[in-house]
Design a protein around this nucleic acid. Structure first.
Length: 402
DNA sequence: TCTGGGGTCCTAGGACCC
DNA sequence: TCTGGGGTCCTAGGACCC
């Protein structure tokens, strides 16, 4: 076996939020625990020094589980599941509030620990990263009769560093690219270390369901199933013409590449945000007329939060949008592109308000959101603009439109 | 018992420019 | 007057991911 051009690792923290909570409440180890409650579900410290935890059966509201421990997963409770539904499956499971600040702190800790061993890291959210191991010293060295022994031992070093820095375990997959590594890191969870090379594709990857591929979601998965394509191997052997016919040129070819484990995407160590948003789901559905005052307050607050985010990041945006979700879960968006970038709550509120006027508000609302895009930094060359037609004017020095 | 919040990327039509 | 092709920007919606 010869080593591939690249060796990419995907590192995924094990049941991250729940595991961080277990560091605080070690007495919960081994129990079904679900993270996703509000602050009011925080454990109560009793007079005798013990803690009283909220149970899933006590929950009412519209929240979802963000994470569950492996014991809770055994009871059928998974992330993104509504907590009311989860309560039916596991009424006695412990419920904990989501504490993003803590998770972000541990996220910084584990990423810093990895960076000391292997610095080429791509952030993929709070609990996972890609690492390019290709140039890490020692990775390309065989150990004993194992040509991949070097990679294996660097991965063990990374896992040890993460454990030392955080007390948490993670799972790592190492393959020639990001797509395969993402799949591989899940093969031996928790606390796993899995290497998959090109020649292992038929035995390790092809028997897996197509949904394991990052980028095949519920819709594409269902359509593939309808075509009789359940496993990645079946997808790899599918007629390319048929895939393109059903899924379009771009996605059709991507499906085939993915099934064959082909992926040339680099590990991207830096990226700028494309858009920033704030949204909230109401405790009860609100009506534009009947609950006008409350909606107005919420709308203003979302704009203020968004302005705060922009200020902290030192950026402005030209495209302001709103998102509305009605009873029945129908979602609608509207946006407007201004002729200059803004960042204040008042400017955002004014633009978002104009978007709101373009929506029929007859039905009750369950969610309201505000978004800003077309981002730039102050002093940066302003984004290109149309100079004519029904679009905004680029250089509106005179103030005269006609 | 309906389904959080924060994102990215893609598609597709219309407008407009060259 | 009709016919064009390439390219960008704007807007809305949708799939997907963490």
């Amino acid at each position: 076996m010869s080593l591939p051009e690249r060796l990419i690792a995907h590192l995924d923290m094990d049941a991250f939020y729940a595991s961080v909570e277990l560091l605080r409440y070690p007495e919960l180890k081994g129990l079904p625990v679900v993270v996703g409650g509000r602050r009011e579900h925080a454990p109560q410290l009793l007079a005798d020094g013990t803690r009283r935890f909220a149970r899933l059966r006590d929950y009412t509201g519209r929240g979802v589980a963000t994470t569950s421990t492996y014991a809770a997963r055994d009871l059928g409770v998974f992330s993104a599941m509504g907590l009311m539904k989860a309560a039916l499956r596991a009424p006695d499971a412990i419920l904990l509030p989501t504490d993003f600040e803590s998770y972000r702190r541990y996220s910084r800790l584990f990423k810093a620990a990895v960076a000391e061993v292997a610095p080429v890291i791509e952030d993929r959210g709070i609990d996972e990263i890609y690492i390019d191991l290709s140039e890490v010293p020692g990775v390309r060295e065989a150990v004993g009769h194992d040509p991949l022994g070097g990679a294996r031992s660097v991965a063990r070093e990374i896992k040890n560093s993460v454990l030392r820095a955080t007390g948490l375990t993670c799972s790592i997959g190492i393959t020639p690219n990001k797509l395969l590594s993402k799949i591989a890191s899940e093969l031996d969870k928790p606390d796993g270390l899995t290497l998959v090379m090109a020649e292992d594709l038929p035995t390790r990857i092809w028997p897996l369901p197509v949904r394991r591929i990052n980028g095949i979601g519920p819709k594409a998965g269902a359509r593939l199933a309808q075509m009789g394509l359940e496993t990645i191997g079946q997808l790899a052997a599918a007629d390319p013409g048929l895939l393109v016919e059903r899924f379009g040129d771009h996605y059709g070819h991507w499906l085939l590449d993915a099934a064959h484990g082909r992926d040339a995407r680099p590990v991207v160590t830096h990226s700028e945000p494309v858009s920033i948003s704030r949204e909230t789901t109401f405790e009860r559905d609100l009506h534009a007329v009947h609950d006008k005052a409350e909606l107005g307050r919420i709308f203003t607050r979302l704009c203020e939060l968004l302005a705060g985010d922009l200020e902290r990041k030192g950026i402005l945006g030209r495209t302001i949008g709103i998102k509305l979700r009605f009873e029945g879960f129908v979602t609608v968006t509207r946006d407007v592109t201004l002729d200059h970038a803004v960042s204040s709550a008042a400017d955002i509120r004014a633009a978002a308000g104009s978007c709101l006027k373009r929506v029929d508000l007859g039905k009750r609302l369950r969610l309201l959101g505000v978004r800003i895009g077309n981002l730039s930094r102050p002093g940066e060359a302003p984004p290109k603009l149309r100079t004519n037609g029904n679009r905004v004017r680029a250089t509106d020095t005179s103030g005269e439109l006609f």
